[in-house]
C-alpha cells in the first residue's frame, strides 16, 4: 500500500503548498508513490488517516499547539515544510514586540477575541523528522526530502553557507556589487536560488549552526554595514531562533 500523505497549514501564506501544486510532471511521479489524502489547496476530500504529515506554517496560538500535537500523534513521519514551519519565518517578526500591544495594533478593538503566543517553528513544539526549508520551498529539495522519507533514510540540511553553492554557480558576490546579502550566515541547500536570479539571500533557510562571529563582524566593518541593520535583516525570517531552548527533549 502506498503511504498516505496529508498536508496541513498553520500560520503561513500557503505559498509552499501552491509550490507543490506547480510541480508539473514531477508531481505525477510523486503521486505514483504516495496517496495524497488531505490537501486543502487542490482537493475537497480530507482524511484523518495518514502516514506522512507535511506541515506548513508556524505555531502562533495555543490552539495551534494542541492541533499540531494531535497531528504528531497520528503521523508516522512529520515533515516541516517551508520557512514558517522550519524556522518560524516572517511570522516570527511579532516576537520582537510586546504581544498584547502588537495584538491591539493589528486587531484594534477586536483584539480581545484573539489569543496569541510567541511564534514558534514546528520543531519547537513537536518532534520533526524532516526539514524542507526555504520561502517558498525549493522544488529540487522537496523531491530530495520526499525520496529520503520514502526510503526511510535521514535528510540533512547542509550546515554550511549559501556562499559555497553561490560560488559554484559563478555568481558575482553581492558584497562586490555593494549590496548586503545574508548568504554568508544562511544554510545552503537552495543552490543559491535567489542570487542566481539577481536577488540577495534573505536568510529564509535559517542560520548555519556555527557562524563565524569574528569573521562576520570583520566583513561588516570592512563594508561599513551597521550590525543592528544586519540583525534586523536576519530577524525578518529568523527571530524564533531565540526560542530554541524551548525545544522539546524527545
Amino acid at each position: 500500500m502506498k503511504p498516505r500523505v496529508a498536508f496541513f497549514d498553520f500560520t503561513c501564506c500557503e505559498g509552499c503548498q501552491l509550490q507543490m501544486a506547480n510541480f508539473g510532471e514531477a508531481l505525477l511521479d510523486i503521486l505514483n508513490l504516495v496517496d495524497v489524502v488531505t490537501f486543502r489547496e487542490v482537493m475537497s476530500e480530507r482524511s484523518e488517516d495518514y502516514d506522512i504529515a507535511i506541515i506548513e506554517g508556524s505555531i502562533t496560538t495555543d490552539h495551534d499547539v494542541e492541533r499540531v500535537k494531535k497531528i504528531r500523534e497520528k503521523a508516522k513521519v512529520v515533515i516541516a515544510y517551508g520557512s514558517c514551519a522550519t524556522i518560524g519565518g516572517i511570522n516570527g517578526m511579532k516576537n520582537k514586540f510586546d504581544l498584547e500591544e502588537i495584538k491591539k495594533y493589528v486587531y484594534k478593538d477586536g483584539a480581545k477575541h484573539f489569543s496569541t503566543i510567541p511564534t514558534r517553528a514546528v520543531h519547537q513544539v513537536i518532534k520533526v523528522d524532516y526539514f524542507i526549508n526555504n520561502c517558498p520551498v525549493y522544488p529540487p529539495e522537496v523531491i530530495k526530502v520526499l525520496k529520503a522519507a520514502l526510503q526511510g533514510i535521514p535528510y540533512e540540511v547542509p550546515d554550511y553557507a549559501v556562499c559555497v553553492e553561490c560560488k559554484l554557480n559563478e555568481n558575482i558576490c553581492m558584497y562586490d556589487k555593494g549590496i548586503t546579502c545574508l548568504g554568508p550566515v544562511t544554510k545552503a541547500g537552495c543552490n543559491s536560488w535567489c542570487i542566481n536570479n539577481g536577488n540577495i539571500c534573505y536568510g529564509c533557510r535559517g542560520m548555519v549552526s556555527n557562524p563565524a562571529k569574528n569573521g562576520q563582524m570583520d566583513i561588516l566593518q570592512k563594508y561599513k554595514i551597521p550590525l543592528d541593520w544586519v540583525v534586523n535583516k536576519v530577524d525578518m525570517y529568523n527571530k524564533p531562533r531565540e526560542l530554541e531552548e524551548e525545544k522539546p527533549k524527545k
Partner: peptide, 28 residues
Amino acid sequence: RCVACGNCTAVCPTCYCFDILDNINLDL
C-alpha cells in the same frame, strides 16, 4: 577572520576534493 564560505577552494584550479552521493530517481 575566515568565515568558512568555501570560496577559496571552489575557485582554486588545483583543489580537487570531492564528496560521493547517491541519488535515487522518483521510481525509487
